[in-house]
């Protein structure tokens, strides 16, 4: 049966290759820290399932120490030059888009099919992991198309992946670390503590205040926790149900739907949602770490006002 472990092996190989290529790259002054960072991550991907928890914790400390003290910096890459790329773009034209668009198309196809495949009655893919395995299968298939079409040197997928990983740097690991932090928060009861605080701070009286306490509370807690999913149970059970549903006879469906979307407004404004707000900064080579958040804040605030108004006017009997 194909499980996530298969994808972790692939990621392990990818990060190990990035480590080795960095180690051999004498043009990069930062080659040893780079190689250590990708190498430690590779160990986590390849052997994380077999190592004791404490060893996995030590791997994190190692990666964080390297990233904080020495950083992960791109060296000179051995990719094509700008002139070569322009010439290649002329030659291939719009056909270049095919392998890129093949990734989402294959993901959709694989998503719809691999879940149904069985060998001797056992499913080929672990049923709960179909979505992620589909993405992995799709990237492999698209890579094959790209290789057959463009016929680059055989090592190109690795050297190019290393170039991009170095460009993204330590930010590549941040979303995973934040997910781990979320799990630690949940285990330590941070949500419950916030809930106690929130219900103590609830304003009583004016309906608009109660509605705003929920929508703005969702956005703020989402900003702190990094995702609306963590904030939703706390704010909905703590504020929305007692105040808006029981107290004001609001429609729970409308309240919950718009409450979640108010949380999404918070997601647009927080560095804690690293995969949406910090990773693109690294991918697009932006000097200001908060450049994407800055652009999103006006839209997020306006939509938060809109959500509050929608909830206030639509969810309650008149």
């Amino acid at each position: 049966m194909i499980t996530l472990e298969f994808l972790y092996r692939l990621m392990g190989i990818l990060t190990a290759a990035a480590a080795l290529i960095n180690l051999r790259d004498r043009t990069n002054q930062n080659r040893v820290p780079n190689a250590s960072f990708w190498g430690l991550w590779s160990v986590s991907f390849l052997f994380g399932s077999y190592l004791p928890d404490l060893a996995n914790g030590v791997l994190i400390l190692g990666m964080v120490a390297v990233a904080t003290l020495r950083g992960v910096r791109a060296g000179t890459d051995d990719s094509t030059t700008s002139a070569e790329r322009i010439a290649s773009a002329r030659r291939w034209g719009n056909r270049l888009f095919l392998p890129a668009l093949a990734v989402p198309v294959f993901t959709l196809l694989a998503n719809a099919t691999i879940g149904h495949l069985t060998i001797d009655g056992t499913p080929l893919v672990q049923p709960k992991q179909v979505t992620l395995v589909a993405l992995g299968v799709a990237t492999l298939a698209s890579l094959a198309i790209g290789m057959l079409m463009l016929r680059p040197p055989a090592r190109a997928p690795f050297t190019e992946a290393r170039r991009l990983l170095d460009a993204v740097g330590w930010a590549a690991m941040l979303p995973q670390l934040l997910a781990a932090l979320g799990a630690v928060f949940a285990a330590a009861g941070v949500g419950a503590a916030v809930s106690t605080l929130a219900s103590a701070a609830i304003p009583s009286g004016a309906p608009l205040l109660s509605v705003a306490a929920y929508t703005i509370g969702m956005a703020l807690l989402t900003m702190l926790m990094g995702n609306a999913f963590a904030a939703f149970p706390v704010m909905t059970l703590g504020i929305a149900l007692p105040l808006l549903v029981t107290g004001m006879h609001g429609d729970p469906t409308i309240i919950a739907a718009i409450g979640m979307l108010s949380g999404f407004c918070g997601t647009l404004m927080t560095p804690m949602a690293a995969n949406f707000n910090l990773v693109p900064v690294a991918l697009l080579d932006l000097p200001d770490r908060y450049a994407v958040i800055r652009v999103q804040v006006p839209t997020a605030l306006l939509l938060l006002v809109v959500n509050t108004a929608l909830l206030y006017f639509l969810a309650f009997p008149r």
Partner: peptide, 9 residues
Amino acid sequence: PVIGLLERA
């Protein structure tokens, strides 16, 4: 790897 390959081209 796919994206890098295509950027290269």
